[in-house]
C-alpha cells in the first residue's frame, strides 16, 4: 500500500457558539437537501443538524448528528463555560434513546450527518450567514480503517438492536416477497 492511501481528506464543520442567532436556517437547508426529490419538502425535525436552544438562558448549540447508540452513556456531562451552564447532552451528537433528537419523526430511525455527500459545501454551512458554522477541508495521515457504515447499514444496525436480528431478517424477507 502506498503512502498516498494513508492520507485522508477530513471534512470539518467548525462551530462558533457565540455567532449563532438561533435562526435554524441550517435545519431548514439540511432537511430540504435530504428530502426526495431534493428540496421538495422541509421539516426541521428531519434535519441532521439541530440547534439546541434555550433562549432565556442564552444557550445556542448547533449540533450535527453523529453515531447511533443503542444505550445512553453512563455518567452524562454538564459544562459550565464562562459562567454559563449547559445541560447534559448539550454537546453530544449521538442519536440516543435518551432523547428525541436525530431520529426520523415517522420511523424513529436514527439520523446521521453525511456532510451533504455530493455538495462541495455542506448546505447547513452555506445558509449560515451569521458565520456560526464554517467549513474546512484538510489532509490527514490515517491508519487503515474500516469503511464507514452507509446510511442503510446504520439504520439496520439500530433495528437489529431494537428488534433482534431474526425479526429484522424475517421482515426483510417478507417485504422482498411482496415486491
Amino acid at each position: 500500500m502506498s503512502d498516498q492511501s494513508k492520507k485522508k481528506i477530513v471534512r470539518e464543520i467548525k462551530v462558533d457558539l457565540d455567532k449563532c442567532i438561533g435562526c435554524r436556517a441550517c435545519e431548514v437547508a439540511c432537511s430540504g437537501f435530504h428530502a426526495s426529490p431534493k428540496y421538495s419538502s422541509f421539516n426541521p425535525s428531519r434535519s441532521r443538524i439541530r440547534v439546541v436552544q434555550d433562549l432565556v438562558n442564552d444557550v445556542y448549540v448547533p449540533l450535527r448528528a453523529g453515531e447511533y447508540t443503542a444505550a445512553e452513556c453512563t455518567g452524562r456531562q454538564t459544562f459550565k463555560i464562562h459562567g454559563k451552564q449547559y445541560s447534559e447532552c448539550n454537546f453530544c451528537p449521538a442519536s440516543c434513546p435518551s432523547r428525541e433528537l436525530f431520529k426520523e419523526p415517522d420511523s424513529g430511525l436514527p439520523l446521521k450527518c453525511d456532510m451533504c455527500a455530493d455538495e462541495k459545501m455542506p448546505m447547513c454551512v452555506e445558509v449560515c450567514r451569521p458565520g456560526a458554522l464554517t467549513y474546512e477541508e484538510r489532509e490527514e495521515e490515517r491508519a487503515d480503517e474500516e469503511p464507514a457504515l452507509g446510511e442503510v447499514e446504520t439504520g439496520l444496525k439500530s433495528l437489529v438492536h431494537k428488534y433482534g436480528a431474526q425479526k429484522v431478517m424475517d421482515t426483510i424477507a417478507r417485504l422482498s416477497q411482496n415486491d
Binding site: G32, K38, Y39, S40, S41, F42, N43, S45, P105, E126
Partner: peptide
C-alpha cells in the same frame, strides 16, 4: 410539529432561496 411542508417547484425555489440568505444578510 414534526411533519413535512411541501413546495411546488422544489429545485427552482431552492435556487431562489439559497441566494436570499446572503442577500438579506
Amino acid at each position: 410539529g414534526t411533519k413535512d411542508v411541501y413546495v411546488a417547484r422544489a429545485a427552482e425555489l431552492w435556487k431562489t432561496c439559497r441566494g436570499k440568505y446572503q442577500e438579506i444578510y
